[in-house]
């Protein structure tokens, strides 16, 4: 028996909107630790890793580990029917073939339940080792989204370079080139507007902007985004989910020839 009650149901709505276009089907894993998902896009270039820790739920019951295969597009459709202030409860029976999403309005005057069929998914799980990253950039998530969107109007790929001077986002296309440099900025009034660059070694990597733009659909989840870079490693773009966990996107770099 599984029963997860999330007072801030909008978090789950936002998570689904962030990942549904990147991954079609995925297994949600439920354990004492929390509600999690790891899935790759169909071309095995990008990976989504979600964790919602059990402590973040108002009620969390998971009698035994359960893996539930879901079509993320269909799950997103159902969660879209929840109000932004609704409390969302996810329910499933051990060995059952469906999952129920229950939506309660804040004053309990509307209660809806949506039942969705589960599916069998053969998913490959990748082991992601803890790594020391050569450069970690923390910046406003809206700024990161703006940069990716702007650069994708010029080119298909972005070169992200971190040096002592700052972080540079560059692209090149048929009409010309673009370079955007952000310097460290901790002197802002609000911490969510800061840009913080931690660099061990200068690093420069190339990525497909199509994927970066897809990741930025998670912007409503967090005011800041963390971009972790190391040569020879996929970049990690992380959105923290308040008090609960994270949504991380891994993207394999392109090889310059």
């Amino acid at each position: 028996m599984l029963e997860l009650r999330l007072v801030q149901g909008s978090l789950l709505k936002k998570v689904m909107e962030s990942i549904k276009d990147l991954v079609n089907d995925a297994n949600f894993d439920c354990s004492a630790t929390g509600f999690s998902l790891q899935a790759m896009d169909s071309s095995h270039v990008a990976l989504v890793s979600l964790l919602l820790r059990s402590e973040g739920f108002e009620h969390y019951r998971c009698d035994r580990n359960l893996s539930m295969g879901m079509n993320l597009g269909n799950m997103a459709k159902m969660l879209k029917c929840a109000g932004n202030d609704d409390i969302v409860t996810v329910k499933a029976d051990d060995g059952g073939d469906c999952v129920t999403f229950m939506f309660e309005s804040p004053n309990q005057d509307k209660i809806a339940d949506f039942e969705m069929k589960l599916m069998d998914i053969d998913s490959e799980h990748l082991g992601i080792p803890e790594a020391e990253y050569e450069a970690i950039v923390r910046m406003p998530s809206a700024e990161f989204a703006r940069i990716c969107k702007d650069l994708s109007t010029i080119g298909d790929t972005v070169v992200i370079s971190v040096t002592k001077e700052g972080v540079k986002f560059s692209t090149r296309g048929d009409i010309g080139t673009a370079n955007i440099v952000l310097r460290q900025n901790t002197s802002v009034d609000k911490p969510e507007e800061a840009t913080i660059i931690e660099m061990e070694t200068p690093v420069s990597l190339t990525f497909a902007l199509r994927y970066m733009n897809s990741f930025t659909k998670a912007t409503p989840l967090a005011s800041q985004v963390t971009v972790s870079l190391s040569s020879e490693l996929p970049v990690v773009v992380e959105y923290k989910i308040a008090e609960m966990g994270y949504l991380r996107f891994y993207l394999a770099p392109k090889i310059e020839e």
Binding site: M40, S43, H44, V45, A46, L47, E124, H125, L126, G127, I128, P129, T157, T206, A208, E232, L233, P234, Y250, A252, P253, K254, I255, E256, E257
Partner: peptide, 14 residues
């Protein structure tokens, strides 16, 4: 010219 790496080049299946 650039070509796209896949994730399996970095992370091993478990």
């Amino acid at each position: 010219k650039s070509s796209q790496n896949r994730l399996e080049s970095f992370f091993k299946p478990v």
